[in-house]
Design a protein around this nucleic acid. Sequence first.
DNA 1: ACCCTTGTGACACTCTTGTAACAGAGATTC
DNA 2: GAATCTCTGTTACAAGAGTGTCACAAGGGT
Lengths: 215, 215
Amino acid sequence: MNILIADDEKHMTTILKTYFEKEGYKVWVAADGEEALELFFSNKIDLVVLDWMMPKRSGIEVCNEIKQVSLAKVVMLTARSSHDDEFSALDIGADEYIRKPFDPRILMLRIKKMLGTQKVAAIRDLEIDFERKKVYKKGEELSLYKKEFELLTFLYENKGRILSRDSLLSSVWGMDYLGEERTVDTHIKRLRDKIGADHVITHRGMGYSFHDKNQ
Amino acid sequence: MNILIADDEKHMTTILKTYFEKEGYKVWVAADGEEALELFFSNKIDLVVLDWMMPKRSGIEVCNEIKQVSLAKVVMLTARSSHDDEFSALDIGADEYIRKPFDPRILMLRIKKMLGTQKVAAIRDLEIDFERKKVYKKGEELSLYKKEFELLTFLYENKGRILSRDSLLSSVWGMDYLGEERTVDTHIKRLRDKIGADHVITHRGMGYSFHDKNQ
DNA sequence: ACCCTTGTGACACTCTTGTAACAGAGATTC
DNA sequence: GAATCTCTGTTACAAGAGTGTCACAAGGGT
């Protein structure tokens, strides 16, 4: 996700940049309206955070121009408190309007909701989308069976920890499950065939673990 | 679209009811938290507007309970101005948090944005006209039954997401619906026969999803 | 070299889903 | 008010995808 922040207060952009980068977004910074538009049109931006008052072109102008031609999300950030301003910003197409001073946690929450709160995990060449129950290897979608996905999820949630067949059976199959312990082996094998053998580590006599270190 | 408004100030619910009805929504009104939950669970509600401070159950409790089991949208309306309150409301799953006093036009705008004020949709050979409740395949009008159209609408609104029979039953048939889960299958089949089987994807053991990618 | 654990492929069975036919509730018409 | 039509929900059965088990192979540890 690529984010563009435009504000003439250096202080503000620095704070926001830090927050966004901590969440794993790629960030561009502009100090005025013109620069914002330039950066927007020369990069693939998914979300723009705009201050209302900026030199050269105001936030509302920039928002308007972007919304004419693009589906990118726009958040207006402003010190103005009038209801009319909020109304016209939203009416022009802004997706969010937040008054300064604001709580950065709230900004982040609202933005995450806006961008679709996709809970995705990335482990080297693997991506797991828990919400949509999809797994990608090198960008290509894998088709996992339900049990395989559940097993992968549980392994991932406990990555690095050694999980005995027994605990895997009770957690993934259910406490009351009666059946062969070796069933786990078969599922591990099938999972390995799909996601790549090296993601699951065998600990002889103890169980399996999910490889958590990147590289 | 069915909307539930819960606020103990009669004055407030009356105003909101008027606004929403002018926009063509069907409105239910509750005067306290308990009534809100009752109405929610005995009707097919798409959006809930909740006052924070209410007798019996607070808005935040109601929100929490609803979000546990339903995909309905929730807007918190409150006189509290603390940032912490806003954060916890959003964190619990509220989709919007608006401070009183507010500008009703802004509330309506934000809600319209939230509900996705989309009037028509096109998915490959399919066109859905939500306002006129009509569906076209390759330009030709299909005749869907009411339930089929509702099911299609809900699938479309959540395209890409895997929806369990259970959540389909509660969202399309209503929270209080008692009946076979397999009823969903039958309706999915009928829908598929009309719109084309490939628009609805089966996820064995998990549910169905609407195919969201063009091609 | 031996034993014990794990990997692997094949097979069998079960459970989920697709499907058609039927039943019944409402609506509509005469 | 009966007859008919429209729409929705249930059931039963078939197909086959998904899962569990087994037997044998491979490999590590002592």
